[in-house]
């Protein structure tokens, strides 16, 4: 079991405690940025999980939107507790991923990406026309209870933040462990060589399917958090193809090396977006797009690669100063 409690695990745990402490200090606008980062971070982890198999979805807003709209629908029928809403969002998004997975697991490369996009646009087309869910205007989300308790108005957002942080923490640790498990590593092997995986006795498609459901559930969690954060769901900001594009953006920005980095990527994205919109509303897309291009050109492995760069530099410096590095080739 000790292998599970590795540096990433402790890093994430430390991050969780830092967030819970910060919660007391944050101004509300910062907390909103934090909440949105946690939400998009969850979705981006789902994309990272797929990315490890070489699959990219240009339509994960499908599951994100499904999670978000599940909150709206459950509230319509009177369910209003955060845990039930979370379970509901995970179940519907996961259920949808399970069904679509039977199909999507047969596709690779650009076809996988585009089929996902087609499905997300179908949902968009439906939601934009369903009047009981507000069609293009969307529908408001009311305040929720926490395990049956109602938070006072000052305490509501901080409480929401605590729950969102814990959900995101569980999602991140779970995904990290999954990626280290036999199945998680196997799907990286699927990227390398599906035939070999088949001839070792496991179905590459099944491995992908499981991964797809996991990524759908993660996107659903993100959708639930976002719906509660914004207090409103609508097709344009939850399901449109550009929303899916933003998720891929975060994945690239963060790099696919580590689930913890994904949240940092989501935060950077959120800050970029907020500040660009604040100070240069005319060109915020330009700034965002420019940042993405810089990352693609100069940091192909995302922000996470800064860390390995720093490490190798440190190792180099250590070697220069005459220390002997041992055990470098191990592991």
């Amino acid at each position: 079991m000790t292998r599970l409690l590795d540096r990433t695990f402790w890093g994430l745990t430390l991050g969780l405690f830092a967030l819970l402490l910060l919660n007391f200090l944050l101004e509300e606008w910062m907390r909103s940025i934090g909440l949105q980062s946690l939400s998009r971070g969850c979705v981006a982890i789902g994309l990272l999980v797929l990315w490890r198999t070489g699959l990219v979805s240009f339509g994960h807003a499908l599951f994100f939107g499904f999670g978000a709209y599940t909150v709206a629908m459950l509230q319509i029928i009177g369910i209003n507790d955060i845990i039930l809403l979370l379970i509901g969002g995970m179940a519907t998004a996961g259920g949808l991923a399970l069904v679509l997975g039977f199909l999507l697991r047969q596709y690779r490369a650009i076809f996988f990406a585009l089929l996902n996009m087609a499905f997300s646009m179908i949902l968009y087309g439906v939601l934009a026309k369903v009047e009981s869910l507000g069609s293009t205007d969307g529908i408001g989300i009311s305040q929720v209870t926490f395990f049956g308790f109602t938070a006072s108005s000052e305490a509501y957002r901080p409480t929401l933040f605590v729950f969102a942080a814990i959900f995101a923490y569980i999602a991140a640790v779970g995904s990290h462990w999954y990626l280290k498990s036999t199945l998680g590593l196997m799907t990286m092997a699927v990227r390398e060589n599906e035939i070999r995986v088949e001839y070792l006795g496991y179905s590459a498609e099944k491995a992908i399917h499981i991964k797809y459901v996991l990524s759908g559930v993660l996107a659903g969690v993100g959708g639930v958090i976002m719906a509660l954060t914004v207090g409103h769901v609508d097709p344009d900001s939850m399901v449109y193809w550009t929303v899916s594009g933003d998720f891929v953006f975060i994945t690239i920005l963060a790099g696919t090396g580590n689930v913890g980095a994904t949240f940092i990527g989501a935060l950077v994205y959120e800050l970029l977006r907020t500040y660009a919109f604040e100070f240069a509303p005319e060109i915020w897309q330009l700034i965002l797009g420019g940042a993405l291009l810089l990352i693609i050109m100069f940091l192909p492995d995302g922000l996470w690669s800064l860390r390995s760069e720093w490490r190798s530099r440190r190792a180099l410096a250590a070697a220069r100063s005459g220390k002997t590095e041992k055990g470098e080739a191990g592991q």
Partner: peptide, 28 residues
């Protein structure tokens, strides 16, 4: 698996061969 080491190739092969069901979710 070209980008992995020989050892990682082998342990992956054993992992896939020996794990089934929920065991797949345990570390390799």
């Amino acid at each position: 698996f070209l980008s992995d080491s020989v050892f990682d190739n082998m342990i992956m092969a054993y992992g896939i061969a020996e794990r089934t069901g929920l065991g797949l979710f345990t570390p390799i």
